[in-house]
Simulated scan of single mutants.
Amino acid sequence: MKKLTYLAVFEPSADGYGVYFPDLPGCISFGENFETALKNAEDALGLHLYGMEKDHEEIPTPSLTPVLDEDTEKGALISPVTVFPDLVKNELDNKRVKTNVTLPVWLKELAEQNSVNYSRLLENALTEYLHVNTR
């Protein structure tokens, strides 16, 4: 399984730690303590890479030494952060989301009388209609 490790900069502040990834502009996070900041940095990294992939952007090769922003706070810590992009993608792509549908009243009443599971029925119908193999 593919894993990616990027160096993150953890900047201490009165509120906790701000986090940024020099190789990934716009990928930032925060935590009230280092442990929380590290966990949030992992989540931010996974989501950022997922978004880049969805947008068909090139994923940059991780640097071996970070180039710090000029305004990086003194006492900043540099730590590797690792994610498994395939796990993140699988989790996000299979996340359940709500969607509204419109039905005639008589059909809705009949479905409820027969204990129809709308979510399961719609998912099965869509996968069949779109010829999606879920196995």
Rank of each mutant, 00 (worst) to 15 (best):
K2P: 07
P104E: 11
L110K: 15
L49N: 08
G16T: 05
K54T: 04
E53Y: 09
E109Q: 14
A14P: 01
R120V: 12
A44S: 12
A76G: 11
M1A: 09
E32L: 05
S63Y: 10
L7I: 01
P66K: 06
Y20E: 08
K2A: 03
R96K: 15
T102N: 12
E123S: 14
E109D: 15
Q113I: 05
T82L: 04
V81T: 01
C27K: 00
T99G: 11
V97I: 12
T72V: 09
K108W: 09
K74V: 14
V105K: 14
N117E: 05
E70Q: 13
E11G: 08
L68G: 09
D23P: 04
L4G: 04
S63T: 10
E128T: 09
V116L: 13
N133W: 02
V81H: 01
E109Y: 06
E11H: 04
S29T: 03
K39Q: 11
V19N: 02
V67W: 07
V105C: 03
L107D: 08
L68R: 04
L107W: 04
D86W: 00
T134S: 04
Y6G: 04
S79C: 12
A111D: 09
S79D: 11
T134C: 03
L77H: 12
L64R: 13
K39C: 06
T5V: 05
I59M: 03
R96F: 11
F84I: 15
E70Y: 11
L47F: 14
H131K: 15
Q113F: 07
D93S: 05
K74T: 13
C27H: 02
C27L: 03
V88L: 06
T72D: 06
E112F: 03
G75F: 13
G75E: 05
A8S: 08
N117F: 10
V116A: 05
D86H: 01
G46P: 03
V101R: 05
M52I: 08
T61C: 09
P66N: 10
V67I: 12
T72L: 04
T82E: 13
D93G: 00
N124S: 07
T134E: 07
L121K: 11
D86G: 00
T82V: 08
D23V: 02
D69I: 13
G18Q: 08
A37P: 03
R120I: 11
A8P: 02
V83C: 01
P60V: 09
Y129K: 15
A41P: 06
K54I: 07
T36R: 03
K2V: 02
N114M: 06
L121G: 05
V101Q: 07
F10I: 01
A111K: 05
D71I: 00
P12M: 07
T61Y: 10
V88N: 05
N90I: 06
L47C: 12
V116F: 08
T65Q: 15
I78W: 02
W106Q: 12
V83L: 01
V81Y: 02
N117Q: 08
D15I: 01
